[in-house]
Design a protein around this nucleic acid. Structure first.
Lengths: 186, 186, 186, 186
DNA sequence: CATGAATGAGACTTCATTCAT
DNA sequence: AATGAATGAAGTCTCATTCAT
């Protein structure tokens, strides 16, 4: 646990990234983080004002990674429908790689208290960004049809975590595909 | 804190019902529960083997209440479409009454660890029951179209908790209504 | 755990006999006893005034069993030396059967507090009885030579528990045998 | 309870040394230790991983003190016989000073469970060291005669704790003295 | 910049005992 | 004679945070 090449701050964030996602925010204690990061306790509080602050940085880092992966899936196609359907392929991929741990942001949402408003604001921002992504990707801006996809996407993530199965993703993908055929999205 | 009229076991469960739902499972300690229930600590462990066991009983009680309320909304109509749309009215009602605390079951899902398998099993059971409810309510059994509604319903709950707003429910309800008009559900 | 043929009081004592000896007095809780005996908690306090009282009854019952086994070994011979040496054979036998749990009385001695005087008195009585047994078995009353055997016997029990090995018993037996040859015991 | 001069870790160990020896290991709770040491609970767990670990440190510290006292008694003589007999004088002294609390190591032996293997290993080590001390002190290595003394020494400690009396020590000492006269030890 | 020591508050669980039925 | 419910006290251990160095 000693003499890592990277800086303490990075090690802390990396470790938090792993543990908060795998075990949850409340379940992961400061002690486990510093122990696995190989860092002194005071060092954590030197770089992060509080656990909530570390939580915020965790969400930021997680968002960056998550979003990049999403784009790498959607950027392979030019057509709207293919781009949209590719988002569900991304979910299948991440479910497999991360063993159905679901959405980091929704998971933290369930854990936070009313007084942890910083965390809530960050989560809302990133989810709004995802809504915007779907809206921007879909050509027809009329009537927020993109939210249909957004809601199905969110449900797919949540339900595959719940049932530890890919069926919700596959079903959501099929629903979206059918709706395209039905000209639901004009 | 003394001389309550009801039995200790009931007081414990009632208090847990309130606190687990309002504050979350991990955030709510055994001490707060017994203090607010006006009961000795050993009394809790007399009636519930562990906190996880109390959590299971909480989910059972919550399910009973929740499901009854759902049915009271859907039973007001005879027609399928109206029944289905009424489920979203139920969400709007409960969001308002409970200040957007979202779904007890999904919230707990985010908090539990792999070793708390009893809790996961209970959550999965109740969600499967909800899936079955939609399937049974919708006449056309072909192709599990009912899961479209199920997924939108789940997303509506989750997203209204996230944004502290009714728009996801209203949007989901409109989507379902439009799909009926489009003959999506045959 | 239900509908045993024997009386509750007997079941409690039998269970305590097993558990106190195997696990120790303080380590064994009242709850485990009643659970394994299949008896209500109040039933225990109906038949035994307190845990200490149950402890006293345990020592009595244990003594009866232990002493009977000891006599069954010594009664096989008529000669003093053979009788004495047989006591060590008894130790070897009981060590094997009970997996080196040592002496119930000395074990409890280590656990009791100054205020548990009833237990101490019982232990002292039974150990004095053992001293008397050696004194009565050995013909020559002069100078309490029997205490040499008593002390070696006690040490053999204690040390075989400590080292989880029969060597202390075998060594003690050999020492006594040698002393006989040396005419130490006249 | 505040502003003690020595470091918390030392105060904890000192207090444990006193309480474990006087009251026993299981009977002495962590709460009493920190209360009498004037230290926060978390401080105990900062310096000692668990109660068992504190128990190990207690045994180490106890051994150091005990052994030093033993040597101070035996080092006063050059001759083997006098050295050996001095060990029993040491027992008489410690019995008096410590009010017949017996041997810390044997007392803990009676309390520990099979899963507390660290403690058992430490106890066995120190007792083996004592065996070696007798073997090294006695010139004639033939036939492990030193174990005769070791066993009598152990019994003397145990039995004086049991009977709250010096007679077992005095008797053991006399036996050893007689054996020297008998040329038992060659 | 980095650290190990120290802490108050609280986590979950079990103790031996009593009481009303 | 027998029981299950109820309890105050205590059990071991961990929480997020601060401070002097």
């Amino acid at each position: 646990m000693k003499h890592h090449p990277v800086l303490p701050k990075e090690r802390i964030l990396e470790t938090a990234l792993k543990l908060f996602h795998e075990q949850g925010y409340n379940t992961t204690g400061i002690n486990q983080i510093i122990s696995e990061a190989g860092v002194a306790k005071a060092s954590l509080y030197l770089h992060f004002k509080s656990k909530e602050d570390l939580g915020v940085e965790y969400l930021k880092a997680r968002h960056a990674i998550w979003y990049e992966q999403l784009l790498s899936f959607t950027n392979e196609s030019k057509k709207e429908k293919k781009k949209i359907l590719a988002t569900f392929d991304f979910l299948i991929d991440i479910n497999e790689k991360e063993n159905f741990r679901g959405c980091s942001f929704l998971n933290m949402l369930s854990e936070i208290q009313p007084d942890e408003s910083k965390l809530l604001a960050v989560i809302q921002d990133y989810k709004q960004e995802l809504r915007n992504f779907f809206a921007d990707t879909m050509e027809n801006p009329k009537d927020n049809l993109s939210d249909t996809v957004y809601l199905l996407f969110e449900a797919a993530m949540q339900e595959s975590q719940l049932f530890k199965s890919q069926w919700p993703v596959e079903k959501a993908k099929k629903i979206v595909s059918d709706l395209y055929k039905l000209k639901y999205f004009k």
